[in-house]
Design a protein around this nucleic acid. Sequence first.
DNA 1: TCCTCTCCCACTTTTGAAAAGT
DNA 2: AACTTTTCAAAAGTGGGAGAGG
Length: 468
Amino acid sequence: MQSIRDLKPNFSGPPPSSMAAGPDPAYLQGNIRMTLEDPDLWKTFHGIGTEMIITKPGRRMFPHCKVNLSGLIPCAKYILLVDMVPEDGFRYKWNKERWEVAGKAEPQPPCRTYLHPDSPAPGSHWMKQSVSFLKLKLTNNTLDQHGHIILHSMHRYHPRFHIVQADDMFSVRWSVFQTFTFPETSFTAVTAYQNTKITKLKIDHNPFAKGFRDEGTNKKRRANKNPACLEKRARMSDMLSRDSEEDSPADFCRSSYEGYDGEEAEPPKRKEGDSVKEERYSPWAADRDHRVRTESPAGADPRDLYNTEQLVPAAASYQPYRAHEYGKSPSPSSSIGSTNSGSGRSSFESRVPDVATVPDHDSSKQRTHEVGPSSCGPQHLPGPQDYTGVLNMTMAPAGKPGVIGHHIYSPYSAEQPLGQWSGPGPAQYPPPPHHLTADYTAQAVHHGYHHGNVAEWSQYPLFSYSCW
DNA sequence: TCCTCTCCCACTTTTGAAAAGT
DNA sequence: AACTTTTCAAAAGTGGGAGAGG
């Protein structure tokens, strides 16, 4: 099974007729522009080393991902997705005010993709206002049934934004994926904040945390220490015990870091005394950038050819991070061994996003499809996992007005369950086709590529969950 | 002993239904 | 009666704290 990206080289045959007669190439080859909203806030966090809390029930990101889009065809429909990509193949620990490599990364959890609830929507909809992924939640529960994005604590990730021109999820396979990343959105997944500066920043900027801004609240917290509270804690302990029984380690992911070389594991340098208002990126980024140049020849992988197509200039504020200028994205933390990084990344990329989180479309406010567990592909995974997820999505009626000029062919009717696309679970992920020496996101801030092969695309297990 | 994970607490914002007003 | 605005309770989100467990 291959990831979206890995499919690119397989797009060797003629594209589907609908694609061949597809949209104005100008739209596909560089006019689409995505800019990150609140870049200063992101940079402020990034300068310190962004941490994102992950919890079992799922935790929102803060800052949350919010982007502006332009260059879309106003009448054509698009689907927006977000997934999380490991920055590297390492696990980290917080030690004496800095992050240090604590060993090899754990096998990747099921890779999930968050589908923006408005999807699919016309380009005009996406462009008229900023697109927020506020409700995207992160979890460390590998058995999560809510469609949240599953991450490992103490690992570093960065979000990837995908824009797909497609009438509905069934058309996605024929469509062009355009992928954007913003180096300043990288973060470390944690179950509790490690860096007090991050804590302070979160409290200062997150409205939900206002209660922690004034010192007076501290005394309220003391009230927790009462007998009733202790009783509840005892009960909670029982629950925890039960949970741990359920959460038996699932061997559904192969190790993503075959290329890991412990010798190259160098603790990412954290700049001591970063100020909250720090505008430049953390030393993680600088370190990584350096290593990237010296150890990982960009473009070594033939797939890079695909990465360079449809390169869209990033927002001016992110120019410094564009691949064509630096060769590599200076995402933080990947500072550790670029070859490792590339390997880890590529391994991850070879995984299959097992979930397409399904929206309830704001405009329709209805869920038209409830589809049972996928019947496709062996279910090798223990437990309910994602592979028994249900499709819960709003489909755009076939032939719906609004899409003019660039109708994308879909071999499926709108009623066809998306679950039928589902392939084998991640337990069957093949090893990466070959070692990727190049850091994926580092290739370009923006990538575009086709899904031209039905057979391969059909292997994508798109499971859908309702996130909210 | 150290590190990580977990849950509850008190607080805040958001949401949406009901009530009130036009 | 229909629509808009206001009110308010419930739901959801937040980090801190401290215990549990590996």
